[in-house]
């Protein structure tokens, strides 16, 4: 199915957030996720099911002021 990952359309086979992150190559432990604008904690990724058209944001540490 197709979902939007950090504003880019991506085709994935996985149907959970945990598996999708792995499939998409997001392997760093220092990431946080939001699905359709709502925070999804690390612990809930494995039980969070994805549906086509979902908007996934994957964020990581960046320099900031």
């Amino acid at each position: 199915m197709q979902i939007i990952v950090n504003a880019e359309p991506r085709e994935i086979r996985a149907d959970t957030l945990e598996a999708a992150l792995d499939e998409l190559g997001f392997t760093s432990p220092a990431i946080a996720t939001a699905l359709n604008g709502a925070f999804v904690s690390r612990a809930k990724r494995v039980d969070t099911r994805l549906t086509a058209g979902d908007r996934l944001e994957v964020l990581s540490p960046m320099q900031g002021g």
Binding site: N6, A7, T27, I31, L59, S60, M62, G64
Partner: peptide
């Protein structure tokens, strides 16, 4: 610090 979009590969 801040948070910004991660790219695959880290």
């Amino acid at each position: 610090v801040s948070l910004r979009r991660e790219t695959a590969g880290g």
